[in-house]
Design a protein around this nucleic acid. Structure first.
Length: 858
RNA sequence: GCGAGAGUGGCGGAAUUGGUAGACGCAGACGACUCAAAAUCGUCCGCCGAAAGGCUUGGGGGUUCGAGUCCCCCCUCUCGCACCA
């Protein structure tokens, strides 16, 4: 039984969504003359169902979109699907369903769910990255990049799963085994395609400074990821002959100042020198073998001992003819950083010290703290700070930076084998982006391998290179590879039989330019210059912090690459970035420690028990909703039961958006109660307005109204949605009070109700439409302008100041806003509560902070 | 190990960036309405105390008329990176 006033969210919401659709309210026109605003949430992977994380993410974006629209902007707010990737192939293997069918069915299901949230999206621009129309354009971009020298082909070491016949990402290797097959992963050298992101390392680094609307955390993470370090590339002459003993050994160092403390050289297991020595030294070969078997996981590295083996080679010390240094192969040297070789200075590098202690190598300190003297030495800990150089011939007495400079200056002018012995060099941790994947469900790389011509790009006119549909997943490996005909083509250059590339692109490529494609989703080429110039950068991008590095860095690279090949000016893709927190929930485990799904959990006499077995459950930690913990709440159920506005309101309430939010039934109930309460309040208000009357001037309510509008707009603009929500609560309390006051005139009530509806419309859009109609407004509140704030109503003419004595609040005083400090002081000292604490003595000091506070120092 | 962030009532969290700590919500208590329950409405709600008053923002110092906010030293938790020479 429902009372007539009860707001029926599911029915009302569907009605308004249909009305928005009919009016085509959220379609955006590129030619619109109003100022643009591009708001985008990271597009979803079509897993099949939306989860609460999506609800939170898209609600935040929608609040921004609706707010900016009300503020007079032409708002682009599109949606699409990050649709290529492994899960579709896994589904194909497990359930014998074609990846395309699986993906498009999932998209249909999720589109329906997203639509039930009432998001103000321009669905006319929707696309999926697996649409031929999209990946065709991506192939076009690839060819553009190839022509511009931004794509290279090199061999690189990859994690190879010998059972699934595929390359695995590092994240997919767990304890040295494939995450799916469980097979021991092999390191293989494969020829792979790379995007030359390192060409832009310096630019990507420098431009971070300009991204002032990005979280500092993300900028820092990218800075560290790019990992710039300045140093010296220096060569050491090999002094003994024999296999690998000719020429010199090049190292990269950031500490040339410690050269006199060098006691050994070390090269990576993959270093050419190591390989050359291994050819004649079985023990070295065996050691290299062992290094390659060593896992790359964090746990392995942390506990791994520093190990090495002598090659028998030695190098000359550049500044001391009497010394030569032994060359080791060592397990802690990375082949793909610097030159894959170092000189070891144990006294001033912890790793080198550990290594030297193990192999009994000399440890000579050459930098000492400023307050130490020349018998300074290191024991268990290397000394890595700045200090004074000693034990170092011509460097003695210099500071670390000065010594670095002195060594560089000497060596770069000295000849070794016809070239300078050293060269100043900036090194980056960032590596080129390997995009080859041995998988079916991705964008085919549009090249052909011809025996005569080598690598031949597919001509643009021949695009798209479409994925074949007749593929099977009954055996592991890449279906494209074993397809009977697909890879057999004629060479576009010479016409001879050739082989099509069967690798597909990393799905991060798909997501590196989708935001640009949204600006002109039907453009004939990949990117419409004008549309992109008009819309980019994205004004507000919202998504999970897990993409802080890869997706966001790749996208920044892509904008630069796209500019280079002529699609526009170089620009950052995302001017404003916001990373929202996760949605968490309590988790529950049964007596066997197995996770129990939420629908099987009931509370009985204050205890959590299993709904079916009745067995006791332990309440586990509050953690992110996940399949494994079985603690996910289904958005469909919430929306079906309470309506989308309740789910949206909950997501915005209480918890700051960057933090994790805990979903609770009590919280959802509270959000729903407010939906009902504000509806009743507005019904009552509408009734009062109809009745008319009210003898007062309504100024108190009018001030609240205008102050609230101003506060809420500030909160939304700074993305402090939880504060905006709190203000709506407070405002509704105030309106209720004003309603009970018979003196409040109808006009002030009408103004307040209208403004309040407009202010919560971005957050609870359906309820807002219904209420808008209720109070007699024409048209959609979704299309209505944001309420104007009357600045005059924001200033108070009388002000209540707290009065402190010795920093403790003892009284209050109400004075005119512009009262003189002297007058305030006199009035304050006359207060009985102040007198009491002064004991008749004159105050030592009175501090009057205008419009803030008064403090009397006794 | 390195880097970043956070510690405020029973809980989520506010506090114009040095100016009334605890807004707003949840939970809780009492009351009204009801045959009853739900829903709703009203009052109370940091701690100690009968009150006056005192205490209170992880702990300890400091600067200041005044500190959740600034400085120094600790403690705890979360996240990111991880042999980067």
């Amino acid at each position: 039984m429902t009372s007539p006033e009860r707001y029926n969210a599911p029915v009302t919401e569907a009605k308004w969504r249909a009305a928005w659709d009919d009016a085509d309210l959220f379609r955006v026109d590129n030619d619109d003359p109003r100022p643009k605003y591009y708001v985008l949430e990271m597009f979803p992977y079509p897993s099949g169902r939306i989860h609460m994380g999506h609800v939170r993410n898209y609600t935040m974006g929608d609040v921004v979109a609706r707010y900016r629209r009300a503020k007079g902007f032409n708002v682009l707010h599109p949606m699409g699907w990050d649709a290529f990737g492994m899960p579709a192939e896994n589904a194909a293997m497990q359930n014998n369903i074609h990846p395309a069918k699986w993906t498009y069915e999932n998209i249909a299901a999720m589109r329906k769910q997203l639509k039930s949230m009432g998001l103000s999206l321009d669905w006319s621009r929707e696309f999926a990255t697996c649409d031929v129309a999209y990946y065709e354009q991506q192939q076009h971009l690839f060819l553009d990049f190839l022509k511009a020298g931004l794509v290279t082909r090199k061999t690189s070491k990859v994690n190879w799963d010998p059972v699934d016949h595929t390359v695995l990402a590092n994240e997919q290797v767990i304890d040295g085994r494939g995450w799916r097959s469980g097979a021991l992963v092999e390191q293989r050298e494969l020829s792979q395609w790379f995007f030359a992101i390192t060409d832009y390392a310096q630019d990507l680094l420098e431009a971070l400074d300009g991204l002032d609307r990005w979280p500092d955390k993300v900028r820092l993470m990218q800075r560290n990821w790019i990992g710039r370090s300045e140093g010296l590339r220096m060569r050491f002459a090999l002094t003994n002959q024999g296999p690998g003993g000719e020429g010199d050994l090049e190292v990269f160092t950031t500490r040339p100042d410690t050269i006199f403390g060098a006691s050994f050289m070390a090269v990576a297991a993959g270093h050419p020198l190591a390989k050359a020595v291994a050819a004649t030294k079985p023990d070295v070969a065996a050691f290299i073998e062992e290094c390659q078997r060593m896992g790359t996981s964090a746990a392995v590295i942390e506990t791994a001992e520093k190990k090495g083996i002598e090659t028998g080679l030695r190098v000359a010390h550049p500044f001391d003819d009497t010394r030569t240094l032994p060359v080791y192969v060592a397990n802690f040297i990375l082949m793909d950083y610097g030159t894959g070789a170092i000189f070891g200075c144990p006294a001033h590098d912890q790793r080198d010290l550990d290594f030297a202690r193990k192999y009994g190598l000399p440890v000579t300190a050459v930098v000492r703290p400023r307050d130490a003297d020349d018998d300074f030495s290191v024991a268990a800990d290397a000394f890595t700070e700045d200090g004074v150089i000693f034990n170092s011939a011509f460097l003695n007495g210099l500071s670390v930076p000065d010594a670095k400079e002195a060594v560089a200056a000497r060596l770069e002018t000295r000849d070794l084998g016809g070239a300078p012995q050293a060269e100043r060099k900036v090194n980056y941790r960032l590596r080129d982006w390997g995009i080859s994947r041995q998988r079916y469900w991705g964008c085919p790389i549009p090249v052909v391998h011809c025996e005569a011509c080598g690598i031949v790009p597919v001509p643009v006119a021949d695009l798209p290179v479409k994925l074949p549909e007749d593929v099977s997943f009954d055996v592991p490996g890449n279906p494209l590879d074993r397809h009977p005909t697909w890879s057999k083509v004629d060479c576009p250059s010479c016409g001879a039989p050739a082989r099509r590339e069967t690798d597909t692109m990393d799905t991060f490529v798909d997501s590196s330019w989708y935001f640009a494609r949204f600006t002109a989703p039907d453009a004939a080429g990949p990117i419409d210059r004008e549309a992109m110039a008009a819309w980019l950068p994205v004004d507000q991008y919202i998504g999970g912090v897990e993409h802080a590095i890869l997706h966001l860095l790749y996208s920044r690279f892509f904008m630069r690459a796209v500019a280079k090949v002529g699609y526009g000016d170089r620009s950052e893709p995302f001017a404003g970035l916001f990373t929202q927190g996760m949605v968490t929930h309590e988790s529950y485990a049964d007596e066997h420690g197995k996770w129990v799904a939420l629908e099987d959990v009931v509370v009985k006499d204050g205890m959590h028990v299993h709904a079916k077995t009745g067995g006791p459950l332990t309440v586990g930690p509050v953690v992110a909703m996940s399949k494994t913990k079985r603690n996910g709440v289904d958005p469909d159920e919430i929306i079906g039961q309470y309506g989308a506005d309740t789910a949206r309101w909950f997501m915005l309430s209480d918890t700051p958006p960057e933090r994790d939010i805990e979903w609770t039934d009590a919280g959802a109930d509270a959000a729903h109660r407010f939906v009902q309460r504000v509806w009743r309040l507005l019904c009552d208000t509408a009734e009062r307005i109809q009745a008319g009357g009210g003898s007062g001037d309504g100024m108190a309510l009018r001030k609240i109204t205008h102050k609230s509008v101003r506060d809420i707009e500030n909160d939304i603009e700074s993305l402090h949605f939880n504060r905006a929500v709190a203000r709506v609560y407070a405002w509704s309390n105030d309106l209720q009070r004003a309603l009970q006051d018979e003196a409040t005139p109808a006009a002030a009530l009408q103004e307040s109700a209208e403004a309040m509806i407009a202010c919560f419309a971005p957050m609870m859009p359906h309820l807002a439409e219904e209420a808008w109609q209720l109070i007699g407004k024409e048209g959609f509140v979704a299309a209505a302008p944001w309420p104007e704030v009357d600045e005059a109503l924001l200033v108070e003419d009388a002000i209540t100041l707290p009065v402190q004595v010795n920093g403790k609040k003892r009284a209050e005083i109400t004075v005119a806003k512009d009262a003189a400090n002297d007058d305030i002081e006199r009035a304050v000292l006359a207060l009985e509560d102040v007198q009491r604490f002064l004991n008749g003595a004159p105050p030592r000091k009175v501090i009057v902070v205008p419009q803030r506070i008064v403090n009397v120092v006794a």
